[in-house]
């Protein structure tokens, strides 16, 4: 891992004066944690100690709350997040922030496969690398990856923006719909129907905003935009090799 666990500033509750509930998962307690975050009201804050790679941490958050996970998370951390601000001070397992609706999920380390899968909204920031299928079937989420992403990322990506400050693996954006992809480094190969597109002023502007939101100072001018050639939108004999 390239990022140390304490590289993120402590965030404190959104509303001054709020209390923070601490869950130490050394001896279990995922059910209790999720029950508590489901019952939480706007502004409440939670800290998770010793996550130890456990699964389903802070899933189904449904209020503007803060959850700080101090360590590595397992599968589906912050799954279906709605409004929460979840910080993982470590690596995240498969499907971090899967199907997120709104809010923010910040991974200080690396993310495993299918980060942000099918997510409809919100912002997912990964400071390290994300492996295969990052942003698969994304439906409106914004994802900013500080490092590189694995193969088949943004497969069937429908909407939203994926920003990659490192490199992209094979078959980027295969069968992509209307999502917009921005990659700073190299792309190992583009998937079916995914093409490079010109960076116009509005793209530079939206990329700049996304980078700022993720706390990064990369220059938008260094990125290339990729998107759908829209040749697979209708079944056609000329495209049969792409099926």
């Amino acid at each position: 891992m390239t990022t140390t666990l304490d590289s993120l500033p402590a965030q404190g509750p959104r509303h001054a004066g709020g209390t923070t509930q601490v869950f130490d998962l050394k001896a279990g307690g995922v059910r209790e944690l999720n029950k508590a975050v489901h019952q939480a009201a706007t502004g409440e804050a939670f800290t998770v100690e010793n996550p130890g790679g456990k699964h389903s941490l802070a899933v189904g958050v449904n209020a503007e709350i803060d959850v700080d996970i101090n360590g590595h998370a397992g599968y589906y951390a912050a799954g279906m997040n709605q409004g929460g601000r979840v910080t993982i001070r470590g690596n995240a397992g498969v499907g971090v922030a899967e199907n997120m609706m709104s809010g923010t999920v910040h991974v200080a380390g690396d993310a495993s496969q299918a980060a942000g899968a099918t997510a409809h909204g919100g912002l997912l920031v990964i400071d390290g690398n994300a492996s295969a299928r990052c942003g698969i079937s994304m439906k409106g989420v914004d994802i900013v990856v500080g490092g590189s992403i694995g193969h088949m990322s943004a497969f069937m990506a429908q909407a939203g923006r994926l920003v990659v400050c490192g490199d992209a693996g094979d078959a980027l954006g295969d069968s992509i719909y209307e999502a917009r992809l921005y990659v700073k480094g190299t792309v190992a190969s583009l998937g079916a129907d995914c093409v490079a597109k010109p960076m116009r002023a509005e793209h530079l502007a939206e990329l700049g905003e996304l980078l700022r939101a993720a706390g990064r100072d990369d220059d938008p001018a260094d990125f290339t935009r990729y998107g759908s050639a829209r040749t697979l939108y209708h079944f056609h004999v000329d495209n049969s090799s792409a099926y």
């Binding site: 891992m1 790679g53 360590g71 590595h72 599968y75 690396d110």
Partner: peptide, 20 residues
């Protein structure tokens, strides 16, 4: 999964990655 590695001595400073 990572959880299987969590208790190894020195894991906090290990180089952790997914095989390509």
């Amino acid at each position: 999964e990572f959880r299987a590695l969590a208790e190894l001595p020195g894991i906090e400073n290990a180089r952790i990655f997914e095989p390509e």
